[in-house]
Design a protein around this nucleic acid. Structure first.
Length: 383
RNA sequence: GGAGGCGUCGCCUAGUCCGGUCUAUGGCGCCGCACUGCUAAUGCGGUUUGGGGCUUACCCCCCAUCGAGGGUUCAAAUCCCUCCGCCUCCGCCA
């Protein structure tokens, strides 16, 4: 018999006991005692089934949008191209890579980063440190202007937050875990921003909710040995400004486009040439139904590389984190979306390489100057 | 790190000592209706969430839910254990 039926029987029996005469009472107690075992067994069975269903549900990835190109990492579709790639040959000099530039500007120190913390760690020094602060301030200013609420978030989170955002699936090997305290180091503020409204029901008229998170990001970069080993393109720790939206499901696709527009606005203001790609199915991860990346041109690599990424997670994270919205009488999972505004090291790479000049100096894009004390050019320092 | 207090269906709150009469009290807010030139006030009703049954739908019925999970018991908001969070005091610390 089902648990709720047995339980109903047990409850009605329980109501009779206090009122019963002594001899009736003994009889009832005997019956109740026998029922106890049945109830317990049925409950255990129900719990087991619930657990199994939950486990299976957590293994499911999001459903991919039908327009997403099918294939692996290389099978993306280019949607748009913006800006002009510089012809350094025509300008009469060979472009230096970001590390060479960064070192001569006194902006980047990877040697001491490696000495202190190991490979893929770095120091931003002098003008490099100022450049990060300028980028972060400019990005937060743009997001705030667009209506995002600025947020400084925890970088250590509980397992539930990590699991709920979908980072303990196939991406788990890239996540740092503090075993002693069972904390995870977030790889993006998407995690604390999504978990922010965990277990909440949000009134429909409060949507959309938009947050601009700033946090350090930690990535183990397991499985990327030998990839992007020079400089600060791929590192274990960096800072990032991230956009995060909670919207009604029917608004998700439009919001995805809006996030992309804000990313394009940002890269355009930095005067970087870039393309927008529709990421292929094999490179989506478990939580996104569709992902648009903005890739900036990196002169010394001769190709476009990912700077920002905007994902539509639909109800995937909301279901796992139990975040719903109330529209009239009905409550239903809402949709969550996230998009990079500024991942600092990669943005620095792109700025240094694209805006370098023949004498080794780097031109500061106009939009960034107010955040760098009006500085127009970063000059190499004497050794 | 040490000591103590606390966590109740939006918010506040009764109930916990002493288990069954809890189908969780009352107030606020909110929603609906009534009434009144309008507003206000007043009256009546409703107002956690999830699952299941019935149903065109509504209604209604059942189960779970008193921070979470275990345990004791015929029976747990109430007793016991573990964990989480908040508050107060002490210690330490940017």
């Amino acid at each position: 018999m089902r648990f709720d039926e047995l339980r109903n029987e047990q409850k009605s029996l329980g109501k009779l006991i206090p009122k019963a005469s002594p001899e009736e009472r003994a009889e009832l107690l005997k019956k109740a005692e026998q029922l106890k075992g049945d109830v317990k067994a049925a409950e255990a069975e129900q719990n087991e089934a619930d657990e199994a269903a939950k486990r299976l549900l957590l293994q499911l990835g999001n459903i991919v949008h039908t327009d997403v190109p099918v294939g692996g990492e290389e099978d993306f579709t280019v949607l748009e191209t913006h800006g002009t790639i510089r012809d350094f040959a025509a300008e009469g000099f060979e472009p230096k890579d970001h590390l060479e530039l960064g070192e001569s500007l006194g902006a980047i120190d990877v040697e001491r980063g490696a000495k202190v913390s190991g490979s893929r760690f770095y120091y931003l020094t002098g003008v490099g440190a100022l450049l990060e602060l300028a980028l972060v301030n400019a990005a937060i200013a743009q997001a705030t202007e667009a209506g995002f609420i600025p947020m400084l978030t925890p970088a250590l989170v509980r397992p539930r937050a990590m699991e709920g955002t979908g980072f303990l699936g196939q991406a788990a090997e890239n996540v740092y875990h503090l075993e002693k305290d069972d904390y995870y180091l977030v790889g993006t503020s998407e995690v604390p921003l999504a978990a922010y409204h965990m277990d909440e029901i949000i009134d429909a008229d409060k949507l959309p909710l938009r947050y601009a998170g700033f946090s350090p990001c930690f990535r183990r970069e397991a499985g990327t040995y030998g990839k992007d080993t020079r400089g600060i393109f791929r590192v274990h720790q960096f800072d990032k400004v991230e956009m995060f939206s909670y919207v009604a499901p029917e608004e998700a696709e439009a919001e995805h486009q809006r996030l992309l527009e804000w990313e394009k606005q940002w890269l355009t203001s930095l005067e970087l040439p870039f393309q927008v790609i529709d990421v292929a199915t094999g490179d989506l991860g478990s939580s996104a139904s569709r992902k648009f990346d903005c890739e900036a041109w990196i002169p010394t690599q001769g190709k476009y590389r990912e700077l920002t990424s905007a994902s539509n997670c639909d109800g995937f994270q909301a279901r796992r984190l139990s975040i719903r919205y109330r529209d009239g009488k009905k409550t239903a999972p809402l949709s969550t979306l996230n998009g990079t505004l500024c991942a600092v090291p990669r943005t620095i790479v792109a700025i240094l390489e694209n805006h370098q000049q023949a004498d080794g100096s780097v031109r500061v894009p106009a939009a960034l100057r107010p955040y760098l004390g009006g500085r127009e050019v970063l000059e190499p320092i004497a050794k």
